[in-house]
Simulated scan of single mutants.
Amino acid sequence: MRHVEQVMGTAVSIELADDLPTATLASLVDHTVAWLHEVDRRFSTYKDDSEVNRMQRGELTVADCSADLRQVLITCSDLWRETEGYFDVHATGRIDPSGYVKGWSVEVASRWLAANGSTNHCINAGGDIRTRGGPAPGWEWRIGVRHPWKADKVAWVISGHDLAVATSGVYERGEHVIDPVRGRPATDLRSVTVVGPDLGRADAYATAAMAMGDAGLRWLAGLDPAGYSSATVASDGKAFTSRRLPVAALAA
Rank of each mutant, 00 (worst) to 15 (best):
N120M: 04
R244E: 14
Y86T: 07
P135E: 01
T61Q: 10
D88V: 06
I158M: 04
V233N: 01
I95H: 09
P97F: 07
H90M: 15
L250P: 01
Y46P: 01
P148E: 03
A249E: 15
A248I: 02
P246Q: 04
A109V: 10
F43Y: 14
T167I: 03
T232H: 08
A252N: 11
R190D: 10
A136W: 10
W219E: 06
G133I: 07
E5F: 00
D152G: 00
V170H: 08
Y171S: 13
T45A: 14
S50M: 04
T24N: 10
L223N: 05
V12L: 12
V154K: 13
A136R: 13
D203Q: 06
H31F: 13
Q6F: 14
E51W: 02
L69E: 09
L245E: 04
G216N: 10
G58R: 05
M1H: 09
A109D: 12
E175F: 06
T45V: 15
S118K: 05
S229I: 03
S118M: 02
G237N: 07
T131N: 11
S235E: 14
T45P: 09
A125E: 00
I129T: 04
T241N: 03
G196T: 02
T119P: 01
L199T: 04
I74R: 15
R41H: 14
E84A: 14
Y86S: 05
D68F: 05
H31L: 12
A23Y: 09
V29S: 12
S235Y: 08
D236W: 12
G196S: 04
M1C: 09
V12C: 09
H121A: 11
S110Y: 03
D48H: 14
V192Q: 00
A34W: 09
A186Y: 01
S191R: 08
L73P: 03
R42A: 11
V145R: 01
M8R: 07
T75E: 15
D198S: 08
G183Y: 06
S13M: 12
A155R: 06
E59P: 02
V39T: 15
G144R: 09
Y46M: 00
K153Y: 04
S98F: 06
E84P: 01
I123W: 00
D179P: 05
A252W: 10
Y100L: 13
D18W: 04
Y86I: 12
G93W: 09
E15F: 03
G196R: 01
R218L: 13
D49N: 12
T167W: 03
L199S: 00
L189F: 04
T167G: 09
T187H: 08
I158G: 02
H147N: 06
C65Y: 05
C65F: 07
V108E: 14
V195Q: 03
A239L: 11
D162H: 05
A249V: 13
A109H: 09
G134H: 07
S110R: 13
G126H: 11
A215R: 15
E140N: 14
N124I: 02
A155H: 03
R70P: 01
A11N: 11
A202Q: 03
E15Q: 11
L163F: 08
V165A: 04
E140F: 14
M1T: 08
A204P: 02
L245T: 10
D19Q: 14
S110A: 15
V154C: 12
T167Q: 07
H176M: 05
D128F: 00
